[in-house]
Amino acid sequence: MLNDFLLEGKSVLVTGASSGIGRETAIRLAEQGASVMLTGRNRDALNETLSLMKNKDTHSLFAADMEDPSAFASLIENIGCCDGAVHCAGIYKSQPCRYISESQLHQIMHLNFEIPVLLTKTLLKKRKINKNGSVIFISSILAYYVSEGSLAYGASKSALNAAVRFFALELSGLKIRVNAISPGVVKTNFIRKNNTGISQERIDEDEKMYPLGYGTPEDVANAVVFFLSDASKWITGSNLIIDGGFSLR
């Protein structure tokens, strides 16, 4: 039974592997025996992730800014076939609705929704996702639970959630499974670097809304392991909310 959770022999692409949830995911996948293709913008940070991983020589590293079309194209060209892809790259920006700027709306939709969809589509077209593969999108509870200032982000993750279900149906012929994980607040740089204007005090106050407190990157990475492993082979099109009980209230 426990062997079902191992990822030996599986090759997995992880975006956003230079930080936070993506980094911890890469580390966990390596522990479970997967060989990992790590991508993110910051090469030094990717190397740091690699330095924390087991079986270092089985992994590969691709630094690319996915907003740059030519870097995006060469990323897809350079990565090999995979048994799984985990889309962790994402951005957040707090904008009350009357202060949403067109450029930021585009950027958030582009990076959180279009890029993961286009990356998946292109990998499929190039037959780079193997049969029985598993694709995981990191969404957010803000797709379901509204909070002030999160219209653009919440909409981008809602769009992603819809895409998951369409992918799941269309890829079932190849037995490729497609699922989303929607975390509540996870302690990463994400909170600080994307939330100009939110003080530590406000963050501490917010954490009290979580019966089990804020999550850690490991909490999300463990769910990713499950979705990539054969233990979840009958699960597709689902969306797992992991939020320490936040949504119970």
Partner: peptide, 17 residues
């Protein structure tokens, strides 16, 4: 939140709560 966004967009400065 809106004042923080206004300061950012109109004046390019970051203030927090």
């Amino acid at each position: 939140l809106s004042i923080i966004a206004m300061a950012d967009q109109e004046y390019g400065v970051e203030i927090d709560d």
